[in-house]
Write a protein that binds this DNA or RNA. Structure first.
Lengths: 104, 104
DNA sequence: TTTCCAATATCGCATAACCGATATAAACAA
DNA sequence: TTGTTTATATCGGTTATGCGATATTGGAAA
């Protein structure tokens, strides 16, 4: 019951954002999130998100030899991400100072 | 099906944070969120959050004449918020530039 | 080849988040 | 008093989020 602010949510946003910065595979994403949150999201968390983003053409597979699938963001995905980022910033515009204070 | 990144979540965090900046009532909070998101959260959304935060001593009622209840953050709430903010910043540290670019 | 491992895929489930509707209560006006 | 408005409270239900478990697949190693 301790710890309010579960911070559940926004995973789709985070994943799309990560891929927009660098082409990534599912495992790359799991690892990057582990670095940031301390916990590695389960496969059952990450792969359905990738599937959803791919299905809706926000990301697409890049030619890959082997079993590792890497994705890159699409035009549509960039547009979507831009809008989502706007919303995020409207909501959290005053987090800027906190971030600066804690992450430099 | 359009618009990924529903951005559902983080409401408890947002509410605690708003109250930490300024003593607020439920309606104050609804209005502030409307300003940021464009949509006014329903009473069924906001009041249960306040109840939860109050019950767990993260916020407390300040003496109020009349029916309007205003809350202020407690010591425990500040501690909790600080930890939550740390997590948030770890997760979104690279949003700083986006926020700067869009919100000035 | 066979064996093993690592990356991906999928399914069912538990929980959380949020909403709509409705109820209560307090203040004020007529 | 009665009626009206506004803030708060609560309940049930829907949707989304993320997890655990398990299956599948391809490559590498033996």
């Amino acid at each position: 019951m301790e710890s309010c602010c579960s911070m559940k949510g926004f995973l789709t946003f985070i994943v799309l954002r990560l891929i927009s910065k660098k082409n990534m595979s599912g495992e790359d994403i799991r690892e990057e999130i582990r670095k940031r949150k301390g916990t590695r999201p389960s496969p059952g968390t990450v792969y359905p998100v990738l599937k959803y983003l791919n299905k809706n053409k926000f990301i697409e597979e890049i030619s890959s030899k082997g079993k590792i699938k890497r994705y890159k963001i699409t035009k549509k995905g960039k547009k979507e991400l831009n809008e989502a980022t706007n919303k995020f910033c409207m909501l959290f515009y005053d987090m800027k100072d906190d971030i600066s204070r804690r992450c430099n």
